[in-house]
Design a protein around this nucleic acid. Sequence first.
DNA 1: TTGAAAGCGCTAACAG
DNA 2: CTGTTAGCGCTTTCAA
Lengths: 337, 337
Amino acid sequence: MKPPSIKDIAKRAEVSITTVSFILNGKAEKMRISKEVIKRVEEIIQELGFKPNQVARSLRTGNTKTIGLIVEDISNPFFSAIARLIEDKAYKKGYKISYSSTENDPVKARELIEMFKSRKVDAYIIAPVPGIEEDIRQLLAERIPVVIFDRNLPDLDVNYVVVDNLEGGYSATEFLINKGRKNIAFVTVDVEVDQINNRFLGYQKALRDHGITANEKTLVKIPFDATEEDTNNLLKVLFEENPQIDSVFFSTNYLAVRGLFFLKSIQKPINDGFMIVAYDDQDVFRIHTPPISVVDQPIEQIAEKIIDIILQELSADRSLPQSERSKVILPTKLIER
Amino acid sequence: MKPPSIKDIAKRAEVSITTVSFILNGKAEKMRISKEVIKRVEEIIQELGFKPNQVARSLRTGNTKTIGLIVEDISNPFFSAIARLIEDKAYKKGYKISYSSTENDPVKARELIEMFKSRKVDAYIIAPVPGIEEDIRQLLAERIPVVIFDRNLPDLDVNYVVVDNLEGGYSATEFLINKGRKNIAFVTVDVEVDQINNRFLGYQKALRDHGITANEKTLVKIPFDATEEDTNNLLKVLFEENPQIDSVFFSTNYLAVRGLFFLKSIQKPINDGFMIVAYDDQDVFRIHTPPISVVDQPIEQIAEKIIDIILQELSADRSLPQSERSKVILPTKLIER
DNA sequence: TTGAAAGCGCTAACAG
DNA sequence: CTGTTAGCGCTTTCAA
């Protein structure tokens, strides 16, 4: 009924618990345990289907072989794609992933970190919300490996993997300008996070560099918790009050999707006279008629870098000293369609 | 540096460990511990920022407050949406989710269950692959709560939450027939899983009921690990050899997406002369021009049912006896577009 | 080459 | 009302 313990194995094999433990942990030869004993014990382990209780092991060793993944929303394709890739690589090294969605709520984010702390996860991968700098700082102080991604926390010295969002915003905007757009609206989420800010800065810079004056009225900030209907209403106002708009740059994938639905609903065609650029290369942008140009983030590379950093620190058995913290900024790629 | 333990709290408050433990677990009043003591201890807990070590607690109590979620692929929108909803509800009850993707590989699925077992997760939510019946049976024998979803494992008596895929396949097919389609191709994944089989059975039944003879040549099974290119090649053959096809029913969301890309690449328009029905209502089908009709699964209800069952068994502190196992079959909804 | 035993942090039975 | 203590299953030091 109840799963066998190391004790049961030891008893059955007529050896001590210690011996079993050594065999279990591959220290058998180092301890020069005889071949026969090893074989006998291993057979019994097989026979009884014994699996070490990881909880007990964790309590003893202090590591849980679990990585905490904190994202904004696991159902966002960007995050779920990252989650999938990270899972894969972590799994190969014997790590499991526990995930949680913050919904961009610093209070919830803090609770999640607490929860993971009490569960003693070995490392953290976090798409941070503003306001948890202090919590992360504390993790760092305890020398727990942390990588943040998607967005940087500027006043925190921590490993991060982000893309060059300023460049991303710039290239998207410049692309539109080169297509002859004069009135480029910017639709974004009303959250003060680094990556969104940078996309906006890139947008502004591109306009400036091309001698175009930004029009404040065509800058729309959609609350994070806005429903689709709320979003539609805001977009409606945007277009009604600014009929001169000849293109829109959406700063996030889901806003672009909503935007496309909205445009469809008002039957505003996307064509040579009216263009769209979105962030993240998702199926929905490729399948759209006409296809939508996007700023593509190198998801695989992001995941790879994250897990590399984490595993490296984990194997170094501590977080790196400040000086060696990894700062990875990956390029985005404008996919013109 | 190191987080404080219950011992530290006890020492600081000059009470015994027991007292602190009782306070921590809300048994203070039952044990009639004085108000002042409670207050003092709570203050110290606050002050030191003490969080009980969940690992130690788990070892002691035998439960980890963690639920294992095993899906085919967490980056599939269907699964990530479910994951998100489950997470939310579980979180409110103090449970965390660990996830893993099986990639439809029974060997990997088995390993994952083992891993979760050694980590002592309290309950399992599994989108099963064929071949793990025995492992699930064993979980059940140990009275661990298990819910399977998305697909049923016919010869297993276990809680499940699925949709009526036969009905789903039927309604999709009938819809096409009613639209005057005579040559309905069926594109599916080459994996023998219950939900896919039922979608096919529904397709067949609808054809039969309407006096249409199924054409074996227009039934395409795409290997699960086929690349997009492989898929394209198979579809290419399908259309080249069967020019009479006037509609396609795709049995899975991702195959439909690939199909749409393929059709776009060969510039085959979707219109009154050629129609498509997909499974799962995703943005990509709504945004497509023209929009694609789909068999919609009630994702929220699925997630709700799953977590209800799990939490109920968890609070009953054991898996239900066979007779009371929950068998939930939810209806699908055909969204005509 | 193997065994005994301490102890990771916590809960809860039992004793006072 | 509070303290002492055993023990959850495992790793690892120390001793034999």
